[in-house]
Simulated scan of single mutants.
Amino acid sequence: MVKIIASGVRKGNVIEHEDGKLYVVLKAESMHPGKGTPTTTIDMRRISDGIKTVVRYKTVDTLERAFVETIMHTYLYQDGEQYVFMNPESFEQISLSSDMVGDFAPYLQEGMECQIALFNGSPISIEIPQRIVLEIVETEPAIKNQTASSSFKPALLSNGVRTMVPPHIVSGTRIVVATEDGSYVERAKD
């Protein structure tokens, strides 16, 4: 563990809070008022159970920063509530709970490379590619003379997620989707 001052905390850092538990930083903002003490507000999520909290520190307060090892893993398969990944170098397999995978679960594809953060050998978080290619399974047919660029129509993707797509997209089209929120990015180039 390394001590850092509160104003040095950045998004993605893992810190050990006063309660002895590990938290991942979601947002850190420093405020320097004209009068008074400069403060840093940190939004963070407890890794063990996902509870979010907001804490305000003086910018010179020290926090314990945990060193997290991030290793590339390949997604293999889902086994009930567990998602199994493999380290392509050591061939060790690691299982993540559905709570840890969270909203990324529908976007996992066999063979997908993901970054898994490990603390003392235990997985604490996962990061998947920001964009993936999926196929449209079902959508309304294109309507003639509908050229308004702001109009979107609902579509069902091959992973079961619903999204909004432009009117010219038809069933069977492969599109690029943002994994953060499932939104349409562009038509796939393949």
Rank of each mutant, 00 (worst) to 15 (best):
T62R: 13
P106A: 10
E89K: 13
E29K: 13
D79W: 06
P123T: 06
S125P: 01
I126E: 05
E89P: 00
S98Y: 08
G34F: 11
T53N: 11
I51H: 04
Y107T: 04
M112I: 10
V24P: 00
T41E: 15
A28Y: 02
V68N: 01
S30P: 05
L26F: 03
M86Y: 02
L96Y: 02
A117V: 00
H32R: 15
G50P: 05
M86F: 01
E18L: 13
M72R: 13
F67N: 11
M44R: 06
K21F: 09
A105Y: 07
L26C: 06
G34H: 09
K35G: 12
S125E: 05
M86S: 06
H73V: 04
S97A: 12
D99E: 15
Y57K: 09
T53R: 14
T74H: 02
R45Y: 00
I42D: 00
M86H: 03
A66V: 14
P33D: 09
E81K: 14
P106E: 09
A105Q: 13
I42S: 00
G36W: 11
S97K: 10
G80N: 07
V101Q: 00
L118M: 15
G111A: 09
V55T: 13
I94H: 08
Y23A: 02
P88H: 10
D19I: 12
M112R: 06
M112V: 07
S90V: 08
I47K: 01
K27V: 05
G80I: 00
Y77N: 08
P33M: 08
D79E: 15
Q78R: 07
G50R: 10
P33G: 05
V60E: 14
V101I: 14
V24Q: 10
R56A: 11
I51Q: 12
Y57G: 03
V60K: 14
E89C: 04
I71M: 09
L63G: 01
F104T: 01
A66P: 05
E89D: 13
D79C: 03
L26G: 02
E81Y: 06
Y57P: 02
S98P: 00
D79H: 09
G80A: 04
T40W: 00
P38N: 07
C114S: 11
K21M: 11
Y83L: 08
T39M: 14
T62L: 07
G121M: 10
H32E: 09
V84L: 09
E18W: 08
Y75Q: 00
E69Y: 07
A28N: 13
M100G: 05
